[in-house]
Each structure stands twice: as C-alpha cells, then as structure tokens.
C-alpha cells in the first residue's frame, strides 16, 4: 500500500465485517516529537484471537482465503517507518488498532487521500457512524463524518455529493491544521 489512507480503508473494512456501527479514526501529527500516530477503533465484535495471530499474514476468518493481509501489511508498513503497531480492546467495545511511526522517517509512506478514503467508507456504509479526529501539534479538529453526509438535503444525498461534501470538510480541516500548527 503506497498510502497510509489505503491501510485505513482496509481497517475500516475489518470493522464493518466485525459488525461495527461506530468507527473512530484518529490521526495525530506531532512535529516536535517527530511522531505520527494513527488509531482506528470500532465497537464491533472484538478480536477472537491474540493480536499476534491477527497480524499473521496467514490468519483470516474470511471463507475460502489462504491469507489475511490487512493487518499484516499495515504492521509491515509501520515498522518500515521505525514504528510499531499495537492492537488492543477499544473503549468503544471493539478493536483498537494503534500505529505509531516516525513522522519524518525516510521510508514512511505518505498519508495519501484521507478525504477520499473516508468518503468512500461513508458512501458504502450509510448505517456506520464515522468520527474523524485530526490533530497537528496542539491544534485539534473533530469531524463527524457521517453527520456531514446526513446534513445534506435528502434529495442531494447521492454518493457523489456525499463524497464531495465529506472530502471538502476533511481537506479544509487538514489545510487549516497544517497552517495553524
């Protein structure tokens, strides 16, 4: 996965499969500590196995598949950027996947198009509540992604319009954060 956002998309898919109705994506850039932290958590069924097994690329509960790559590849990406991946229980009841990387590591993948990623998750999962917390240094923004989508007039709530609106909101927050921080 070239972009971290694509890993986030994989994690969101895992949460949806685990029956989650809530998805919280937090992205924290700390330029002083040179750290990038990404946390994806849900209120789904929780892990049936240990975190070690879940990150094994040959572990999957998908039928008819020999490999389960989402968590394993994310772990690889994170470790390549001098970081570590921790999988825990989330305070929301499901799984919390927490990745810490060195922000300026030469092999750290770019975040990529987070706005496009989250808007595609919203569009494909209308029943899912998605919350996105962004912070750069001390400055923070919280975007209730699903609410942004629901605030659109009913007759304009088709996926293209939702995607555009959500993207605008997230991109605006990111631009503002980077400018202020």
């Amino acid at each position: 996965m070239r972009d971290l956002s694509l890993h986030i998309l994989d994690l969101a898919e895992n949460s949806v499969r685990a029956g989650a109705s809530l998805l919280v994506v937090s992205i924290e850039e700390d330029p002083v500590q040179d750290r990038l932290t990404i946390v994806v958590e849900d209120n789904g069924s929780g892990l049936a196995v240990t975190p070690e097994s879940a990150t094994d690329p040959f572990y999957t509960t998908k039928k008819g598949k020999r490999v389960g790559l989402g968590l394993a590849l994310f772990k690889g990406t994170v470790e390549q950027a001098g970081g570590r991946l921790v999988i825990d229980r989330s305070e929301h009841g499901g799984v919390a996947v927490k990745a810490e990387m060195q922000l300026r590591h030469i092999d750290r993948n770019p975040l990529g198009d987070l706005a496009a990623t989250l808007s595609s998750v919203v569009c494909t999962n209308p029943g899912l509540d998605i919350c996105c917390r962004l912070s750069v240094g001390e400055v923070k923004r919280v975007i209730q992604v699903s609410q942004v989508a629901r605030q659109l007039p009913e007759n304009a709530r088709h996926s293209l319009a939702v995607a555009r609106r959500v993207s605008e909101e997230i991109n605006a927050a990111l631009t503002e954060l980077r400018a202020t921080a």
């Binding site: 094994d56 690329p57 040959f58 020999r66 490999v67 790559l69 394993a72 590849l73 690889g76």
Partner: peptide, 10 residues
C-alpha cells in the same frame, strides 16, 4: 518479510 510469502501465495 513473512508478508512477501503471503502476498506471493495470494
């Protein structure tokens, strides 16, 4: 990495 093996198998 072990992931190479899994990806190659896949």
């Amino acid at each position: 990495h072990l992931n190479v093996i899994a990806v190659a198998v896949h």
